[in-house]
Design a protein around this nucleic acid. Sequence first.
RNA 1: CGGGAUGUAGCGUAGCCCGGUUAUCGCGCCUGGUUUGGGACCAGGAGGUCGCAAGUUCGAAUCUUGCCAUCCCGACCA
Length: 492
Amino acid sequence: MSKELTSRETDYSQWYNDLVIKGELADYSAVRGCMVIKPYGYALWENMRDQLDKMFKATGHVNAYFPLFVPKSLFEAEEKNAEGFAKECAVVTHYRLKNDPNNKGKLIVDPEAKLEEELVIRPTSEAIIWNTYKGWIQSYRDLPILVNQWANVVRWEMRTRLFLRTAEFLWQEGHTAHATKEEAIEETTKMLDVYADFVEKYMAVPVIKGVKTANERFAGAEDTYCIEALMQDGKALQAGTSHFLGQNFAKAFDVQFLNKENKQEYVWATSWGVSTRLIGALIMAHSDDQGLIMPPRIAPLQVVIVPIYKGPESKPVIDEKVAVLMKELKQLGVSVKYDDSDNARPGWKFAEYELKGVPVRVALGMRDIENNVVELARRDTKEKKSVSMDGLAVYIQQLLEEIQENIFNRALSFRNENIREANSWDEFIEILDTKAGFVSAHWDGTPETEEKIKEQTKATIRCIPLDNKQEAGVCILTGNPSTQRVLFARAY
RNA sequence: CGGGAUGUAGCGUAGCCCGGUUAUCGCGCCUGGUUUGGGACCAGGAGGUCGCAAGUUCGAAUCUUGCCAUCCCGACCA
């Protein structure tokens, strides 16, 4: 396979596609808009999933599973939610195929097998879950319900991109039910914090926590909180959302509970999710023209060892040294692969593992063994150096942490350098067109102004940062008074 | 979904306008050998419903229509 990558400068979109496909994370499939997640990409997702799952459980959540299909009557119950998703729903109308009498060997949908009620393939699961919760909740003693599910969902997108927007994708969706508004809001922000912690500490991608404007809010939510990340091309990417749903779903599905005072009240809800889209964020935040750069804490493979041998007699000597190192690394919980395959030479392997973003590469040959060293190469800086074999496993373990920190700091500097204040419309346009990134600017707070800015510049309000300072100013478009700046960007 | 482009072996491609024996080349793959410190070399070999389907024709990779997929631009995107 040709492994040449398009450079970021030449064609950023193509660079991204090349990384996904040549890095063997995923591939196109026979199904429109749907991708095959390959073993290397899936291993990455598993690591992300496992860590998030631990964090959800540590905050008191449990996992469950709800059906893929949602009867249309349930789907339409919460009007805003239904309306928001209606345009992108796949719908099951029949339950049987039959042989085509006019075309031997072919099948047709059996017209006699039409469903009484269509089944919507979940684009999100609020409807089926709240219909279920109705049966679970009678009293305040049944609350809170803190349930998460790992699932696939389908959204029939017009235009898809590997990981960033696919018709089917994997995600988790937490759906919680609470006795009070305060508790539900606390849950919403708590899970936003969990997401931010995960994305920053494990994926090494810095994020801005904020709240969405009404225009950008989840259909059916009272408030949508989000974490926003910045990609290397200066476009923003929504990396996760946590919604305060108020009593909208409780009212739509008539979920009430008896409080301590023996009065019926509607339940307060939240939902929150992150998806395989995070993999797109990971790729675009860290990778370079040589390929992927995996953050060590979630890398499918942390260390690869490449032997360099001359003649058949040196190989067993190298094998022996490698076996010791591998054992020590595994004891420290470091994932490691010894690539002693004979069908590629060292140079080819170096390039291949750089493409795949393996954080640390160890190379050793007889020359090293004589000197009791190995050649250690780190993917993030491409720095190579000779390191003593004594205490090597511990050294590598520490190096992995250093790499993790380094790529986070690198992404953080980039992000911080690309948040700029605009105090006039001209300034705003100029930053968007010449520098991209986040633009911090005053906005008069109306959906109409937000919409006009979007029409004219394609920039949207990514969020109102949670820690936003209040300051008097004037809206960059209308000149009307404003109390705070909001973050604009062009986004994925 | 609208406009544009593309689809030939695992990957990248020539041939298509102007229909005509056995579909071109490179990489990769297989076998043997020599090699191995940044994408090795020699020799031999395998691999193709020319995206899918229909049509025109004595004859289609080549012409026509429909469909599918991918890319770019737009619309859409909680």
